[in-house]
Design a protein around this nucleic acid. Structure first.
Lengths: 257, 257
DNA sequence: CCTGTTTCTATCGTATGACTTTATCCGGGA
DNA sequence: TCCCGGATAAAGTCATACGATAGAAACAGG
């Protein structure tokens, strides 16, 4: 049912410490909520009953709930209980919430939505980066790009370099709120790589060229060009990912039949 | 030092319950952090010492910290203490974090950044809304617009209607991650209204016309037109807000002199 | 005198039990 | 029928104790 999870590279330091007990509880609850195992409106195990469900103290459990409530995933009220919040209340752009989605089966609509958002934001970000980048920004972007070229396709260092490339562009915009969207972009990249058959060299080469063209435009300080090329990159990535999603769906369908 | 806070209308249900004790603690800590009262890297009051600072139990304090840590504002580690995280780690698009900014003096750079983000996102959102809106969506947008027209300028119902107008457009995009940016848009609107002298009727009328033109484009299902008009609306709002910020800065300067 | 190791200790993390507050539910009375 | 008020269940708060961990300081060896 669940694909191998540990494959995906974490894009940014998550706020949840997996070493701590409350962190593990928060993770478990969050995954149950996001996968739909606990539908909206359903009650979480009662704070006293949880001794049977999971053996953990009220303290740890309550801290986990506070952590999740801050992201809009749950809502606790005296007497009525702690309930799973409706999806509209979730902060879907929160890095942790995005990361937890990788533990669920790929949701095509969600991935399309993220790409759509990315298509709106990242070309504009590339434009700003081209206009505002410092030499230091440029070095960061270049280092990331070389990391993509010099490592084997779809290997972990390559993925990390890909994420670093896009993050460095966001950093060059000098717009902190805008930078907060970097995790959403990272998520789409990780989804496309998560879904990808690791022998698809054609897409990888094309992607490399897309990245190089964006980088060149930023070097030239040509904002419009950078934006246009970033649009191309995102669209290529989207099409490739949609193809993979379709293939996957088809494979599942035939497996059932 | 601090302006009247209660003026601003809350854009969306905040995740923090102000009735609860831990919520008040979280609020206090958050405001101290965001205003810069507690600079990055500084330690929060020790969990045991806090009895002197604020009379609250460790439980409530720790739950407040967990709430904030989920938004990246603080980072707790054994032995070293709980520290204020660097601003790059903050989730500036989180509804609560945005709201807490209203308790600090206006930060021009931050407001400009939010408008910049809005300028990238909201025209695209309007385009999608024009293409995808249902009749129900349209009614919601129209109701909000009428609320702006029929109430006195800068009154609370008017502000709420303004926020509802933009939120309804986001809702019509049918893109949940994109909708998560609505609070950021709401924040800019609230900032501009927070700064505004309540007798500035010229801007209000212009804003009303801008809104009507956007609405018409969405009615006509003309995506490009809706996007263009929304760009105009955002730019007008930005210019007006920047003017107010400049006036305010000037007033402060002369007050000091 | 410098460096690496051990011990110490402050601080967060977890557990537990008692008590308080809140809001829902339900029944009794107008 | 409607309104009011008490019973009640769940989260919220508190106090205390102990465990775990990472810095810091003391110490031993070079």
């Amino acid at each position: 049912m669940r694909g191998p999870m540990q494959l995906h590279v974490k894009a940014r330091a998550t706020r949840l410490n997996p070493d701590r007990l409350f962190g593990q509880v928060a993770h478990r609850l969050a995954v149950a909520i996001i996968t739909g195992g606990s539908p909206a409106g359903s009650l979480l195990p009662n704070e006293d009953d949880l001794k049977g469900e999971i053996s953990v103290s009220r303290t740890a459990y309550r801290e986990a709930v506070k952590f999740l409530s801050g992201k809009g995933l749950v809502e606790a009220r005296p007497k009525s209980g702690t309930r799973v919040a409706p999806r509209e209340a979730w902060n879907l752009l929160d890095p942790d919430v995005l990361a937890w989605h990788f533990e669920a089966d790929p949701n095509e609509k969600f991935i399309r939505d993220l790409f759509e958002l990315r298509l709106f934001v990242e070309p504009s970000a590339a434009r700003l980066a081209a206009q505002r980048r410092s030499e230091a920004d440029l070095r960061l972007i270049e280092t990331a790009f070389r990391g993509m070229v010099e490592n084997p396709p779809y290997a972990e260092p390559t993925v990390r370099a890909d994420l670093a490339f896009h993050e460095a562009i966001f950093a060059a915009t000098r717009n902190p709120p805008l930078q907060c969207l970097a995790p959403a972009v990272s998520a789409t990249i990780q989804w496309s790589l998560f879904l990808k058959a690791p022998d698809d060299r054609f897409f990888f080469t094309a992607s490399l060229i897309d990245h190089e063209r964006v980088f060149d435009a930023i070097v030239q300080r040509d904002g419009d060009l950078a934006a246009a090329r970033m649009s191309g990159l995102v669209i290529d990535s989207l099409n490739s990912t949609l193809g993979l999603l379709a293939a996957r769906t088809e494979a599942n369908a035939s497996k059932i039949a």
